[in-house]
Structure formats: structure tokens, C-alpha cells
Amino acid sequence: MSYKLGKHLPPVNGESAPYWEGCKQGELRLQQCPSCSHIQFYPRLLCTKCSGRGLSWIAASGAGRVKSFTIVRRAVSEAYEPDVPYVIALIELAEGPTMMSNIVSCDPETVEMNMSVRVTFDPWTEEISMPLFEPA
């Protein structure tokens, strides 16, 4: 699934830059609270558990399981049409947080609930590598 003009590129900002920098380096990064050890996604100013600040970044294992999924038969826009049918899934990471992604490198029809998956990175541009998941 390589970048095609018209796909929705994530607008990176100061808060998310370390996350996207990690993706570029092949590392899925999550925030961890130095006070209460809570791990969270997406990146924020505060720890959503204890409201503490000064969150640090950790490298996630990249392992997760499929919490729910769908196979998209009608693309959201022309740029995504070559990918149809593509899988949109919610992945519960081994570290706890849930994130949305695509499941790739397999027949969409073989995707199942609770299936084990691991992260892989697809370079869309020089700056953006998209974290996707494939069967573990």
C-alpha cells in the first residue's frame, strides 16, 4: 500500500512529531507517564490517568490483537480505490492502548477477531511511514 497522490497524509504537529519520527525509523512509539507508568496512545500533553505532565516515549513491542475489523468494499476516495478490498481494524497493542490501522500482507477474508498481528511500516513519503499490521 504505497502512497498515491490524494491519500490522506497525517498532518504531523509538534505533539506527534516523535511518534512519526519513530515510524520513520521503524519503531512504534507510545507515551508513558513517569509518575504512574500509564501507557497511552494517541500522544497528549497530559497523562489521561493521573493528569501528570512530562510524558516520555517508549518503543512498543509492535505486537497486538485484532479487537474489531471490517473489509472496506467501497473506498473512501479515488486515492484508496486501488486498495479495495482493504481492512480497517482496531488493534489492541500488547502494552494496552488501542489504535486504528490497516491489516496487510494477507487475504482480507482471512482476518479474524482476536487474531495476533505485528506492526510493519509502509513508507508513503520521505517524512511519513505508516504503521500497518500483518498477521503475526
Binding site: 491519500k7 490522506h8 497524509l9 497525517p10 498532518p11 504531523v12 504537529n13 506527534s16 496512545f41 494517541y42 474489531s68 475489523f69 471490517t70 472496506v72 467501497r74 473506498a75 473512501v76 476516495s77 484508496y80 486498495d83 482493504y86 480497517i88 481494524a89 482496531l90 489504535m99 486504528m100 490501522s101 490497516n102 477477531m113 505508516m130
Partner: peptide, 20 residues
């Protein structure tokens, strides 16, 4: 806009996650 839309979810796809 950063953590969902790049993956190409349609509105039906987002609700399909609930249905499944």
C-alpha cells in the same frame, strides 16, 4: 485526522467496527 483518516475508513467502516 492523524491516527484514523490516513487508513481510509469510510463512515460505514467506522460503524462496521461496532457491528462486528
Amino acid at each position: 485526522t492523524q491516527f484514523e483518516s490516513p487508513y481510509g475508513p469510510t463512515v460505514p467502516a467506522l460503524y462496521a467496527l461496532i457491528a462486528r
